[in-house]
Write a protein that binds this DNA or RNA. Structure first.
Length: 704
DNA sequence: GGTGACCATCTTTTT
DNA sequence: GATGGTCACC
């Protein structure tokens, strides 16, 4: 019986996948190319482990988002007709948070420590910078964003500040002593106030593991099998954490693709994946090289993209699928032409029977889709957008959350600072004074009542202190939030008087989110560690998956696939980003990013680039096509151009070409018609450019 | 000391 | 288009 069923699902795997699924013990490295069934392999392996009698809670599945983990476990459960939900899953950061709530006391942290997101961390750095007197005028001192990423790199890559500064920010070299002092101060400050930023979660979890053998043992016993997805995007610290957690048994499988590494900017290093065998002697290496996702023409283009990469990669993708349409390169007049093209193609695809949810538009940076969003809205094409600004990053949401953080960790002075500044009549100076009183108190909330005040802000302070005390009495997260919002609304209207109605809707979304949580600390941790993607949109309580197009940054599209993919704004300065063009390593990462984008497509791929547009500072400029397009052979795509201005013109063009006609093309120049494929398509041979298949609807050809 | 108005400055990607 | 900084005025 069991054997029968096992065969039934194991049969669906190819030999390499099967090998990975059945390699249960010892360290295994799976190099999985794009679309090679990586997720499926992980899912089947979870199922296999459970079927072999491993209790689900003994399995740890580390993924890039919790959503990815949930989805995999759902699929594994379906396979077995038995729940795998109790498998522990999530991101490195959420695991570390969970573990530190238990074991953090060993290194002096209460279970209620506060997690700082990137913005909080920057605020803290800024605060300390001024208190150290490092922000006087006229000094060229790095900005808080720069400092934050500098500190983060130092922690994640285990390098010295001096080294990073010298290599990557030589112009700040003279400030090294101050920067080091600030870093030390920042570390001390967080420790003192029970704060941890993203990096601390990893750093301290690693410290606990390495300093306390008994914890290591306990954890090893608890998680007997460890799996890590997207291993190419982990860093040294994370690799060390895996090593320590698996010390007792060595049952670790990591899965990744070095050509899809796109997170170096936050300390990831794709060489990590190549070093795994050194970290775990006796590692079995399995390569998944057969692509099941894309058609050959799409794969040809993808392979050509990665071919240009400087480093030699470890595998080569192939597919057994034949046929399929060539990718299309669309040269748009400007951004609005690009948007119109995408919108119209989407409608045509829908006519052809492609569901909207099978179509995605991908871009380098969130703001690249602004124009398109307007166009889609105008045409009533439903879409959701991923990436870009998060709910939690909006100032008004941070205000509300700061109050909640105080309830959990009354020593979180950063939140106190924010909360106090919201009071009318309180500025930085007064906030400082009040905080000096709170700092000394054992119960800061209670102490607030006894703080000496001035008439100008006394009433506000009373209201705050009363509200906080009332909130302490409530336990339900949702009720707390409702009560808090009653207090906050007048502040919202005063502080954001220009646009508070819009912001008020975000507060409602926050309330919807809170509804799911019974525990405040869980709510706050999730908000910081797994922030909801967009404002309002995806918070509607499970409106049965409406059919909609996906707009996404490429980073947020990782691991997903669609029938049709549009990549837009493929021009120099945007993709590759202007920030990356001066560093060869960053440029390489941009190229891998492009590779990730094109390998998301199964059947159709459209590469779009406007030839004019706006660049910050310059205004309207001519945009050069992305070097990632220019360096490829034009054979790899079909070339389309902007739509005709008038309808009449199109019909005119569609008629009457015959083989042998000589035509003139705005880009390729003179050519000879070789074959008329349909009313709209002709094949033309151009001198110096070879044969092209052109879509007459999108080109302007002149007959000579 | 706080507030509000005005200006400049940039806008990458994310746990 | 939002945030940060400077300045004049209360």
């Amino acid at each position: 019986m069991i054997k029968e069923r096992r065969r039934s699902y194991l049969e669906e795997l190819n030999p390499a996948q099967l090998e990975a699924v059945c390699a249960l013990f010892g360290p295994v490295l799976v190099i999985a190319g794009a679309g090679s069934g990586k997720t499926r392999t992980l899912v089947y392996r979870v199922a296999r482990l459970v079927e072999e009698g491993v209790p689900p809670e003994r399995i740890l599945l580390l993924t890039f988002t919790r959503k990815a983990a949930r989805e995999m476990l759902r699929r594994a459960s379906l396979l077995l007709k038995r729940s795998c939900e109790r498998v522990a899953g999530g991101t490195f950061h959420s695991l570390a948070h969970q573990m530190l709530r238990t074991y953090g006391r060993l290194i002096g942290f209460s279970p209620n420590f506060t997690v700082l997101d990137r913005g909080d961390a920057e605020d803290a750095i800024n605060l300390l910078r001024s208190s150290l007197g490092l922000s006087e005028k006229g000094r060229r001192f790095p900005k808080k964003e720069t400092l934050a990423s500098l500190f983060s790199k130092a922690v994640n890559q285990g390098r010295a500040l001096a080294e990073i500064l010298e290599k990557e920010y030589p112009h700040f070299g003279e400030h090294l002593p101050e920067i080091e002092r600030l870093f030390a101060e920042y570390q001390r400050y967080k420790r003192e106030h029970q704060l941890m930023d993203y990096d601390d979660l990893l750093l301290y979890w690693h410290r606990v593991l390495s300093d306390y053998p008994e914890v290591r043992e306990e954890v090893s016993r608890r998680f007997e099998f460890i799996m890590v997805d997207e291993y190419q995007d982990t860093n040294r610290l994370q690799a060390e954490i895996v090593r320590l957690m698996a010390e007792g048994h060595g049952n670790v499988m990591v899965v990744g693709d070095d050509s899809q590494s796109i997170y170096a900017f936050r300390g990831a290093n794709f060489r990590n994946i190549l070093e795994f065998p050194r970290l775990f002697p006796g590692t079995r290496i399995i390569k998944l090289e057969e692509n099941y996702r894309s058609t050959q023409p799409i794969l040809d283009l993808a392979n050509a993209v990665i071919e240009k990469a400087q480093e030699k990669y470890t595998k080569c993708l192939f597919t057994r699928r034949s046929g399929g349409e060539k990718p299309v390169r669309y040269r748009a007049r400007d951004e609005s032409d690009q948007s119109r093209f995408v919108a119209e193609r989407i409608l045509e695809l829908r006519e052809e029977g492609v569901p909207l949810s099978e179509i995605a538009v991908l871009f380098r940076a969130a703001f690249h889709s602004f124009d398109l969003e307007l166009e889609l809205a105008r045409r009533d094409i439903p879409f959701v957008k991923y990436g870009g600004l998060k709910l939690i990053e909006a100032a008004h949401i941070k205000d509300v959350v700061a109050h909640l953080k105080i309830l959990l960790n009354p020593f979180d002075l950063l939140s106190w600072h924010r909360v106090l500044l919201l009071l009318e009549g309180v500025g930085p100076r007064t906030a400082e004074k009040i905080m000096a009183h709170l700092r000394a108190a054992s119960d800061p909330v209670a102490a607030l009542k006894k703080v000496p005040t001035r008439p100008s802000y006394e009433a506000g302070l009373r209201r705050l202190s009363q509200t906080l005390e009332e909130l302490q009495e409530i336990s339900s997260v949702e009720e707390r939030l409702e009560e808090l919002l009653d207090y906050y609304r007048p502040i919202l209207e005063r502080v954001y008087h220009d646009d508070y109605p819009k912001r008020e809707r975000d507060l409602e979304s926050l309330l919807v989110l809170a509804h799911r949580y019974g525990d405040l600390s869980e709510f706050l941790a999730d908000l910081a560690l797994e922030p909801p993607e967009s404002t309002v949109a995806d918070l509607e309580p499970e409106t049965e998956r409406e059919d909609h197009v996906v707009l996404s940054t490429i980073h947020s599209a990782k691991g997903l696939e669609w029938h049709t993919v549009f990549v837009i704004s493929l021009c120099e300065g945007r993709f590759p980003s202007a920030y990356a063009v001066n560093s060869p390593e960053e440029l390489e990462e941009e190229r891998r990013l492009f590779y990730v984008a094109v390998t998301r497509a199964r059947e159709r791929l459209y590469l779009c680039h406007p030839i004019t547009g706006y660049l910050p500072g310059e205004g309207r400029v001519i945009l050069k096509p992305s070097r990632f397009l220019e360096e490829l052979s034009p054979e790899l795509w079909e070339e389309w151009r902007d739509m005709p201005d008038q309808e009449g013109e199109a019909e005119d063009l569609g008629e009457g070409f015959r083989p042998g006609d000589i035509v003139w093309h705005p880009r390729f120049g003179e050519g000879e018609v070789r074959e008329v494929l349909s009313a709209e398509k002709v094949r033309i041979y151009f001198l110096g450019h070879g044969e092209k298949t052109l879509h007459l609807k999108f080109v302007r050809l002149e007959r000579l």
